[in-house]
């Protein structure tokens, strides 16, 4: 599950760059760019806390041991 969420988070960041590049190439309109960037932003903040905070917790527990 964690790996799955991580993959989504990574894909979201890559997606943001790809959408911007497509806008540069003229394949995506201004309106579509804004919607995609907002959607990617929401997805990032929904998915990233799951694995990023877990990773921090795991690191801390490793150190505590």
């Amino acid at each position: 599950m964690r790996v799955f969420v991580q993959v989504i988070s990574g894909a979201v960041l890559i997606g943001m760059v790809v959408v911007s590049a497509l806008f540069y190439a003229g394949s995506v309109s201004d309106d579509q760019l804004r919607k995609w960037l907002l959607a990617c932003t929401v997805l990032w903040f929904v998915t990233a806390p799951f694995w990023m905070e877990r990773r921090q917790r795991a690191q801390q527990e490793t150190q505590a041991d």
């Binding site: 540069y24 903040f45 806390p49």
Partner: peptide, 26 residues
Amino acid sequence: RFANVAAPWMVVMFLAFGIVALSRFK
């Protein structure tokens, strides 16, 4: 904690600013 989560997204957003601005200049 939220800032930690936001950091990678912020880097990519700055990059998006640059690509979009370049496109508009073009």
